[in-house]
Computed example of a mutant assay.
Amino acid sequence: MQNTEAEKDEKRTGCYRHTQMQKDLIIEKLKERGLRITRQRMILLDIILEGECSCCKEIYYRASALDQKIGVATVYRMINTLESIGAISRKNMYRVACSTKGACTVELDDDTICHLSGQKLNEVILAGLKACGDITGQNIRTLALLPVHKIG
């Protein structure tokens, strides 16, 4: 059974409200710390809340595309500030890197490494999508992983 357009809109709106609520709470905590809510901080906060970046360097690349005056130091300061107010935790970041042979290595924040075959990766992603309610009876046709930029 596929989701109706109304159900899809409700999911998107609910997600937006959740993110907006998070953003409002974070802004309030930053103000309580005496920090100004600058345009650069708002850009960084929006990028971080999207949840698509797994490291500071990725955040920097996306932010600098929007505002060339944002430097790496600004990103690190914002990450440290957000971590100090409890808004994020760098310990929960993880990296996924897939080789050209179809095998996948997942490195977790506690240095645990999981090696997955292409078939196993497909099963894991399919189970995750089902558990999150993103799919009901569909199967994965294509899976594309983007390269992860590493710091260091």
Score class of each variant (00 low, 15 high):
residue 15 C to H: 12
residue 18 H to F: 09
residue 20 Q to N: 10
residue 20 Q to V: 13
residue 22 Q to H: 06
residue 23 K to P: 01
residue 23 K to Q: 08
residue 24 D to C: 07
residue 25 L to R: 13
residue 27 I to N: 00
residue 27 I to Y: 01
residue 28 E to W: 05
residue 28 E to I: 07
residue 29 K to Y: 05
residue 29 K to S: 14
residue 30 L to K: 00
residue 32 E to A: 15
residue 33 R to F: 11
residue 33 R to Q: 14
residue 33 R to P: 07
residue 34 G to H: 03
residue 36 R to L: 09
residue 37 I to K: 00
residue 37 I to L: 04
residue 38 T to H: 00
residue 39 R to Q: 07
residue 39 R to F: 04
residue 42 M to R: 01
residue 43 I to W: 02
residue 45 L to T: 05
residue 45 L to W: 11
residue 45 L to D: 06
residue 47 I to Q: 01
residue 48 I to W: 10
residue 51 G to V: 07
residue 51 G to S: 06
residue 55 C to G: 12
residue 55 C to F: 05
residue 56 C to W: 10
residue 59 I to H: 03
residue 63 A to C: 04
residue 63 A to R: 00
residue 65 A to K: 09
residue 71 G to E: 12
residue 71 G to N: 06
residue 74 T to A: 14
residue 75 V to Y: 03
residue 78 M to C: 09
residue 78 M to L: 06
residue 83 E to I: 08
residue 83 E to L: 06
residue 84 S to P: 02
residue 84 S to Y: 07
residue 86 G to T: 03
residue 86 G to N: 05
residue 87 A to G: 04
residue 88 I to G: 02
residue 88 I to N: 04
residue 89 S to L: 10
residue 89 S to Y: 09
residue 90 R to G: 12
residue 91 K to R: 09
residue 95 R to E: 08
residue 97 A to S: 13
residue 97 A to F: 14
residue 99 S to V: 12
residue 99 S to G: 15
residue 99 S to Q: 14
residue 103 A to V: 14
residue 106 V to Q: 06
residue 107 E to M: 13
residue 107 E to G: 04
residue 108 L to H: 08
residue 108 L to F: 14
residue 111 D to M: 11
residue 112 T to L: 14
residue 112 T to W: 12
residue 113 I to R: 12
